[in-house]
Simulated assay, not measured.
Amino acid sequence: MNTMRNSIQLMGRVGLEPIIRMTKTGSKMAALRIATHQFSKNELGEWTDHVHWHNLVVWGRLVKTVELQCTKGTHVLIEGALTYRDFVDNAGVKRTNAEIKVRELQVIDKIIVQENT
């Protein structure tokens, strides 16, 4: 087993409509966010739901999958690498954003085809 691997796997739902952009070099990329849930008991023994939001960046052949199959609420399974991007916000403050560079994406939702009668 390789102990020096940057890999993350998440299953969640798309939170907003994906944003598809074209780079200056003509490549397409997709940016989207997914929500995952973590359930745990609080001090009173009650179950609580913690929602975690994850920023995803998709490149290459997978952008077409995002364009055609992913909308708000779509259930997806992704595998990728955790990356960090530094930027300066509008107030001039340096910030760091954690993103997942997606290597594999699978839509979990069942596709229901209705026949016209």
Rank of each mutant, 00 (worst) to 15 (best):
L82G: 02
L56T: 07
T83D: 13
N42Q: 04
I100R: 05
M29E: 12
T65I: 13
A31N: 15
H75T: 06
L105R: 01
W53N: 09
T65S: 10
T71G: 08
N55V: 07
I100V: 15
K72V: 05
K64W: 04
F87R: 05
R85H: 11
Y84N: 13
V76Y: 00
T48A: 02
L56Y: 01
V51C: 04
E46R: 06
H50S: 13
E43T: 07
Q106L: 11
V63L: 09
E67H: 08
H54L: 10
F39Q: 09
I108F: 05
V76S: 00
V107T: 06
L32A: 08
V107Y: 00
L82E: 03
W59M: 08
G73S: 03
L105F: 04
N42I: 05
L56E: 04
L105T: 01
F87A: 00
G45D: 03
V93P: 03
Q38L: 10
V107G: 03
V88R: 08
A31T: 15
L44Q: 15
N90C: 07
A98C: 14
V66K: 08
H75L: 12
N90I: 09
R61Y: 12
K110L: 10
G73H: 05
F87I: 02
V66G: 03
W53Q: 11
L44W: 14
V107R: 00
I111V: 12
L56Q: 00
H54D: 07
R33S: 15
A98G: 08
L77R: 06
K41G: 00
H54Y: 11
F39P: 01
D86N: 13
V107I: 12
I108D: 02
R103T: 13
E67M: 11
V66D: 06
T74R: 07
C70G: 02
N97V: 14
V66F: 07
A31C: 15
T36D: 02
T96F: 02
V88S: 06
A91T: 10
K94E: 10
V57H: 04
I112R: 15
T74H: 04
K94G: 03
I100P: 02
T96S: 10
A35V: 02
L77H: 07
K110D: 05
E46S: 00
R61F: 12
C70I: 02
S40E: 04
E46V: 03
T48Q: 13
E67Y: 07
W53R: 11
H75E: 06
E46M: 02
T83F: 11
E46F: 05
L105G: 03
K28C: 05
L62H: 11
Q38T: 12
Q106V: 11
D49V: 07
Y84Q: 14
I100C: 07
V76L: 05
